[in-house]
Nucleic acid binder design. Structure first.
Length: 494
RNA sequence: GCCCCCAUUGUCUAGUGGCCCAGGACGUGGCCCUCUCAAGGCCAAAACACGGGUUCGAAUCCCGUUGGGGGCACCA
């Protein structure tokens, strides 16, 4: 139904006011997917007409976030393209020109109302429990008279002239036709008194000029959707396919993510910001898989998707219009899935920075070596330090009492360590194949359980009660260090 | 207050009139595997918001109610 055989031209149009968050990432992802899928074009457009909210670093952050996720744009700031410039701040004159066209066609009018007048009107309407509307003071001013006032130096804005009667019907790809009574529509401002266009005008003009075929945006735009349809029609333009994505709700399902909620999430090791997720040890693969599935499904059972899979399988017709509560524990699941899907070499590369920021300097070779036993124990990459730090420590620290297995005396445990040392010391090299049978014999002859014996050795060798498999770990640590650590443990129990 | 959107287990979802006393996944509980932790395997509990229609037959279509979400800026 979306005519996706044709190359799609889609755009992600954030305003540079902060970091890339989950909602934006998912919109950009879907844009990217249908562009790639149809051999089309993915455009990044920066909507920076609001100079008050502008944050200089934000554009760069946004692009970095997208890149980290694997989403590259074809046209945009810094990259160029045939329909630039791609920052709205560089297109001011274009919007003004189109606003004039609307004035001339009678679809817009100049307005000289002051902010004081407007707020007074709003106040009265609020008190009377009426819908809040522009009162129409300047609506019927003649263009000639208005231009005279402008020439005289009066400040003005430009408003859209919304029809007062009838209804407007617009079509959303997920929801079908949406019809509203024109009486509830407002004469929205198109151009501010400082000469900057507002979203309603700027976005419509750009989408048309940039030949956008599909507009994918959040459903917070639904209320102004009829206005946008009206603006396109006033210009006589063909409308794109409109797709309003469901909103992401906070984990409780009550309302969208607030600053407060974001702070809460960070405390639990989660975040709605892509940059944070990266620092927290999430993989782009996991995040992409997770957000792709919030509001979209492929079938009734397939859940594992790589970006490549998604380019192949994504389909606008399988989007779900209902709001979705964010579920971070499911992100953990997807992240684990994709970590296990990484090659040993790749996992080594990904975990290295986390070791480094914890003060270790592991080699890629060693990291690749431990990758197999780490893979299935990592919900997030940053946990490598806690799980596998002992591989890179010169000295491991633990309490003597940790060496004492449940049900055994200090002396008995010391004996176990001694015996382990004696058997292991004769080995030509410390391999799992050589060490394991011998230590299992030791378990047998000691009369203790494997759990008890290996528990003691685990603490002695790794310094941890929980660790990757003992024999594999011993092999990687090497004979010399293993024996050293056993010796120290034995002394500790004296 | 006004307008718009949405409504299947705790959560993400499949389901487009009979295949559904509702399928998958996360999470939860149990069991198995097991040197710890994981991973993996098996099993279990858990949902069609409510009320009216339409129809031989409704989770699926229509209406209403309720609930939830969003929007009502010289922000995007």
């Amino acid at each position: 139904m979306a005519e996706l055989n044709l190359p799609a031209r889609v755009r992600f149009a954030p305003s540079p006011t902060g970091h890339l968050h989950l909602g934006g990432a998912r919109t950009a992802l879907y844009d990217f997917l249908i562009a790639k899928q149809t051999g089309g074009t993915f455009i990044l457009r920066i909507e920076d007409t609001d100079t008050k909210r502008y944050i200089p670093e934000a554009e760069d952050e946004l692009i970095k976030g997208l890149r980290w996720l694997g989403i590259e744009f074809d046209e945009g700031p810094g990259k160029g393209g045939p329909y630039g410039p791609y920052r709205q701040s560089e297109r001011k004159e274009i919007y003004f020109e189109f606003a004039e066209k609307l004035i001339n066609s009678g679809n817009a009018f100049y307005c000289f109302c002051t902010a004081e007048h407007l707020s007074k009107v709003r106040e009265v309407q609020q008190k009377n429990k009426e819908p809040i509307h522009y009162d129409g003071t300047c609506r019927d001013l003649s263009v000639e008279e208005a231009r005279k006032r402008i020439a005289a130096g009066e400040t003005y804005i430009i408003r859209f002239r919304t029809p007062k009667t009838g209804t407007t019907t617009v079509r959303d790809h997920l929801r079908g036709d949406i019809t509203v009574d024109n009486r509830v529509l407002d004469d929205s401002i198109l151009v501010k008194s400082d000469g900057w266009a507002l979203y309603h005008l700027a976005a419509m003009v750009d989408d048309h000029l940039m030949k956008i075929t599909h507009v994918i945006r959040g459903s917070e735009w639904l209320p102004s959707f009829p206005l946008h349809g009206l603006i396109c029609r006033a210009f006589g333009w063909q409308e794109p396919v409109w797709i309003h994505l469901s909103l992401f709700l906070k984990p409780s399902g009550k309302g969208k993510m607030s600053k407060r909620e974001s702070a809460e999430a960070i405390k639990d090791g989660y975040s709605i910001f892509v940059k944070d997720l990266e620092d927290l040890g999430y993989t782009p693969e996991g995040v992409v898989n997770w957000i792709a599935l919030m509001g979209w499904s492929y079938d009734d059972h397939t859940e594992f998707f790589t970006l490549e899979d998604l380019i192949d399988k994504f389909n606008l017709d399988r989007l779900n219009p209902s709001p979705a509560a964010i579920n971070f524990t499911k992100l953990d699941h997807f992240n684990g899935l994709h970590i296990r899907n990484l090659s040993d070499e790749e996992l080594a590369i990904r975990t290295k920075p986390f070791f480094e920021s914890a003060g270790y300097a592991p080699s890629l070779t060693k990291l690749t070596q431990i990758a197999p036993i780490l893979k299935e124990r990592l919900p997030t990459l940053d946990e490598v330090v806690e799980i596998a730090g002992f591989f890179f420590k010169d000295i491991i620290l633990y309490e003597a009492e940790d060496l004492i297995a449940k049900g055994l005396s200090k002396e008995q445990c010391a004996k176990v360590i001694e015996q382990a040392y004696e058997t292991l010391t004769n080995l030509p090299e410390m391999t799992k194949d050589l060490a394991e049978p011998l230590l299992r014999n030791l378990v047998e002859s000691s009369g203790y359980s494997a759990r008890q014996v290996f528990g003691i050795l685990r603490v002695a060798i790794t310094g941890q009660k929980v660790s990757p498999p003992l024999f594999e770990s011993m092999e990687i640590i090497g004979k010399e260090t293993v024996l050293e650590r056993l010796m120290k443990a034995r002394k500790l129990l004296k």
